[in-house]
Amino acid sequence: MKDFSNASFSPDLIRTMDEALQRAVATLPEPVSSMRVQTIAESILRCARDGERDPRALQTMALVEMQIRSDEK
């Protein structure tokens, strides 16, 4: 996982990020690889660190980034 050691998040934002992660993973066909979950989680962390607070936006951005990364391979 990328380095997020300097990031800090409020309990409310952690709940928001968890909601976004759960929703994003739920949209994927089973089985969901740990690599995909990690990619989604990193995107959510990065976007939240940069100021995004809407769980749907976090979910959408993470899924789009995951798709872009998989298309690059």
Rank of each mutant, 00 (worst) to 15 (best):
F4I: 06
S5D: 13
A7H: 10
F9T: 15
S10A: 03
P11K: 02
D12N: 13
D12C: 03
L13T: 04
I14N: 05
R15M: 14
T16Q: 06
T16S: 07
M17A: 05
M17C: 10
D18M: 08
E19Q: 12
A20G: 11
L21F: 15
Q22N: 14
Q22T: 14
Q22P: 00
Q22K: 12
A24P: 13
A26W: 03
L28C: 09
P29L: 02
P29Q: 01
E30W: 10
P31E: 00
V32H: 02
S33Y: 06
S33V: 04
S34M: 12
S34F: 12
M35G: 07
M35A: 15
M35P: 00
R36S: 08
R36W: 02
V37Y: 02
V37L: 04
Q38P: 00
I40P: 00
I40E: 02
E42L: 09
L45P: 07
R46T: 15
C47Y: 13
A48Y: 06
A48D: 08
A48K: 06
G51Y: 09
G51E: 10
G51N: 13
E52R: 10
R53H: 12
P55V: 02
A57S: 08
A57Y: 04
L58N: 10
L58R: 11
T60Y: 07
T60M: 15
M61H: 15
M61K: 14
A62N: 07
V64Q: 12
E65P: 02
M66S: 10
M66W: 02
Q67R: 12
I68G: 14
R69M: 11
R69E: 13
S70P: 00
D71F: 09
E72H: 11
E72W: 15
E72L: 15
K73H: 12
